[in-house]
Nucleic acid binder design. Structure first.
Lengths: 258, 258
DNA sequence: GTCAATTTTTGACTCCGCGTCAAAAAAGTC
DNA sequence: GACTTTTTTGACGCGGAGTCAAAAATTGAC
């Protein structure tokens, strides 16, 4: 049994190793460049061995996306627990989005690939479910802040939408802006010089527009964001570091030291 | 010279024909499925002939995207000319976005592909410029409505952002929601049942939040949108039809009739 | 420590698509 | 009709996907 688990451990270990090698290829050179042969040769295994872990490269992409989304979820969880009124907690999640995109850019980019239908459709239902579930968790985290705000009477949302649809708006504006920022051929040349700040202004306007208490001026909003940063940053870095330790376990052949 | 132009016409004609065949493959089965061999055999030409028109499939994708974005621009142009206060004109552009996504879904999906870096980087600078330019036009159309609103004193935008950055917020929320709607693995199951309406509520809140006159209730907003629909729809259909005539020109060997 | 059974790894193989290019076919010219 | 130019063709070389039988390694019974 210990033997069994050792084997399993080794297997899992190598699975992680494959992902570790695959990630920068996918992010830096795209799906095309991510070939099983290349992974194999780069890791000094034969192609067949890689196929023992993943039935095709699409599955590798989804596996990478699961890691990425779990990191996002962990950041959201932490952000939602910040001290303060519900509105500040929502803003903290917004801050987490910014952080994720800017400090975990590779993961942000990996996440994009699941929107590719070819990749999505080809991969296993099991991993699809992991992703759906993770997306569900993220929604859950945010919408429970909204629900609490409603309970507290910090916020009244329009009848026309549900709390989740309320969240969807913020999801869309953040997500949209980040995708555009990372891939729009001409944002700068079109006159959008500071997309992050622009989106903050829009989020502020939305929150005020919905009258989510406490109402804020731009100055207040920015200074609140400026407090959120330091409050979360160190935890965020810990979360990232833990995740990376989990993922990178490449040198520790788990007893040998020295 | 007539000969020359006839040749050119035929060439161009076939280029369009290739795109016509390629579009449904790209949209329905993805980039992988779009192969030069397949195009060739489907059109009953040899592979080399296709290569005379496009140096690789990436270029085909960009060519399709140019067509798509030109349609979008035409819709925006028409929408921006609607009769009414500046705010209604912006809402009309929002309506155009909805229309484009829902009624020109293939073009909407084609547009997405240019965000793929592999495809973007591989294609010719010339076509990249066409796309950048078209994106610039769209931004231009929207931001000139904003600028006019400012001039008219219908709107005062925050100092922190430029008119383009103001537009960027709306771009992001629309774009983001549409991408999520088309590709999020779990929108419905996560509780977002009516994404279009949700985004309308957010846009209303944004416009009111910025105090873009005339301020509206949800009822007024919806009834305004309900008027915009019929006002534009027939022109929109004309625009689409013209575009398709332009693009489909597959049966008219331009003098032979009967 | 040996050996047969089991598990894992390997890489040769087939298939398919990309992109090239010399040769064949067609169109144009006089 | 003969010669030139343009266009089309498809065989070819390359490289990656995914398979699978054979080789290697591991296991555990004795």
């Amino acid at each position: 049994m210990t033997q069994m688990t050792r084997k399993q451990r080794e297997m899992e270990q190598r699975t992680r190793e494959i992902l570790r090698v695959a990630r920068p290829i996918l992010v830096g050179e795209g799906f095309q460049a991510l070939s099983m042969e290349r992974l194999a040769s780069q890791m000094e295994y034969a192609k067949g061995t890689i196929y023992n872990h993943f039935p095709h490269k699409e599955e590798i992409v989804l596996a990478l996306a699961v890691e990425a989304m779990e990191l996002r979820r962990a950041l959201f969880e932490r952000a939602a627990r910040i001290d303060g009124p519900t509105r500040v907690r929502l803003m903290a999640i917004g801050y987490a989005c910014e952080f994720f995109t800017q400090s975990c850019t590779d993961d942000f980019l990996v996440e994009q690939w699941i929107r590719n239908n070819n990749i999505w459709d080809k991969s296993s239902e099991q991993r699809q479910n992991l992703i759906r579930q993770c997306e569900g968790c993220c929604m859950q985290i945010v919408s429970s802040v909204v629900r609490q705000a409603i309970e507290n009477r910090d916020l009244v949302i329009p009848e026309a939408i549900s709390p989740q649809e309320f969240v969807f708006g913020f999801w869309a504006i953040n997500y949209g802006s980040q995708i555009l920022t990372h891939s729009s051929p001409s944002l700068m040349s079109v006159g959008v010089l500071n997309p992050v700040q622009a989106i903050r202004v829009h989020c502020l306007t939305l929150l005020n527009g919905f009258q989510w208490a406490p109402m804020m001026s731009w100055q207040e909003y920015e200074s609140t964001m400026a407090q959120i940063g330091p409050a979360l940053e160190s935890d965020f870095h810990t979360i990232c570091a833990d995740r990376n330790k989990m993922i990178d376990r490449n040198s520790d052949r788990n007893m040998v030291s020295q």
